[in-house]
C-alpha cells in the first residue's frame, strides 16, 4: 500500500481517534488536512489549529501542527490572539455547533465583525454529542434530544446566514458526504484574506441518530446526499426541505482584514 501523503499531518501515536464508529468528524478532519496539503504555502510550521471544547474540538489533538485546545466556546478569541501576535501564521479554528453558536456565539459574531483572517470550520452534528446529546442551537425543529424528548421547539440558527450578516467575507457549507467538495470549500476559506466560515455537516449516529431513528451512519450520509443541493440549483427553487451547499457568500468589496488594520495602528503609534 502506498502511504497517503496526508498521514504526515496526523499524530500517528494518537490514532485511532476516540470518536464513535461512523462519526463524521473524522471525515471533516481529513478534509481539513487535505485542504492544507493542497496549498503549498501552508506547512506544519506556519499553521496553527485552534479548537474549543466538544467532540469536534478533539480534532486538534490528532493533527500534527501547533495546536491549541482551548476553553469552551473560546477558540476564536484564542485564535485572534495568535493572529495578532504573529500575523504571518495561518490560523484554522475547529469548532462545533454548540461550541460556536451557543457558548461562543458572541465571540463568533465579533470575529466575523472584525474580519480577522481566520478560517473557522464548524463541524455541525446538530447536537451536543460529548455531554450526552443535549439539544444545541443548531438542532433542527422537531428533532429529539435528551433535553428535548418531545422534539425541539427552539428555532435553530442558520450559522451561515449569521456569519454573513455579522460580516464574514467568505461563507461556505458542505457535508461529510461531499468530501472533495468540502476540501475545495476549506481551501477557498484558507485562501480568503479575512474571516472565512465553513459549515461542515457531519453525522452523529450515537447522540443525534439514536434519538432520531437514524442510527446507521451510512444512511445519514445518504440523507446528506439527498438533501443537500448545490447553491446554484437551490437558488432556482429555494425550499426548506433541502439545504444549499457551496460558497454561499463571498465578499467582493475588498474589506480590510483586522491584522492589516492593526498594522496601520502600530505604524501610526510609532511602534516597530
Amino acid at each position: 500500500m502506498v502511504e497517503r501523503s496526508y498521514e504526515k499531518f496526523f499524530r500517528q501515536n494518537r490514532l485511532p481517534h476516540l470518536w464513535c464508529p461512523g462519526c463524521g468528524n473524522g471525515i471533516a478532519m481529513k478534509a481539513i488536512v487535505q485542504a492544507i496539503e493542497k496549498i503549498p504555502e501552508l506547512n506544519q510550521d506556519n499553521t496553527v489549529i485552534v479548537s474549543g471544547i466538544g467532540c469536534s474540538s478533539r480534532a486538534s489533538g490528532y493533527m500534527d501542527f501547533d495546536t491549541l485546545h482551548t476553553a469552551h466556546g473560546r477558540a476564536i478569541p484564542f485564535a485572534t490572539g495568535i493572529k495578532l501576535a504573529n500575523p504571518k501564521l495561518n490560523v484554522i479554528v475547529i469548532t462545533g455547533d454548540g461550541d460556536c453558536t451557543a457558548i461562543g456565539g458572541n465571540h463568533f459574531i465579533h470575529g466575523c465583525r472584525r474580519n480577522i483572517d481566520l478560517t473557522v470550520v464548524l463541524f455541525n452534528n446538530n447536537i451536543y454529542g460529548m455531554t450526552g446529546g443535549q439539544a444545541s442551537p443548531m438542532t433542527p425543529l422537531g428533532k429529539k434530544a435528551t433535553t428535548a424528548p418531545y422534539g425541539s421547539i427552539d428555532r435553530p440558527f442558520n450559522a451561515c446566514h449569521l456569519a454573513e450578516a455579522a460580516g464574514a467575507t467568505y461563507v461556505a457549507r458542505s457535508t461529510a458526504y461531499h468530501v472533495q467538495h468540502l476540501v475545495t470549500m476549506i481551501t477557498g476559506g484558507i485562501k480568503n484574506h479575512g474571516f472565512s466560515f465553513i459549515e461542515a455537516m457531519v453525522q452523529c449516529p450515537t447522540a443525534y441518530g439514536r434519538k432520531n431513528k437514524m442510527t446507521d451512519p451510512a444512511k445519514m450520509l445518504e440523507w446528506m446526499k439527498d438533501t443537500a443541493q448545490m447553491k446554484n440549483v437551490w437558488d432556482k427553487n429555494p425550499t426548506d426541505e433541502k439545504f444549499p451547499i457551496g460558497v454561499l457568500y463571498q465578499s467582493t468589496a475588498g474589506e480590510i482584514d483586522y491584522s492589516s488594520a492593526y498594522e496601520k495602528v502600530i505604524e501610526m503609534a510609532g511602534g516597530i
Binding site: 500500500m1 490514532l15 464508529p21 461512523g22 462519526c23 446507521d216 451512519p217 451510512a218
Partner: peptide, 20 residues
Amino acid sequence: GKISVKEERCKGCGICSYFC
C-alpha cells in the same frame, strides 16, 4: 483496485460497505 485495511483503526461502522 487493491484494498488495504489498517485493522487497528477500523471500528466497523459500515460506511465503506454501504457505499461500495
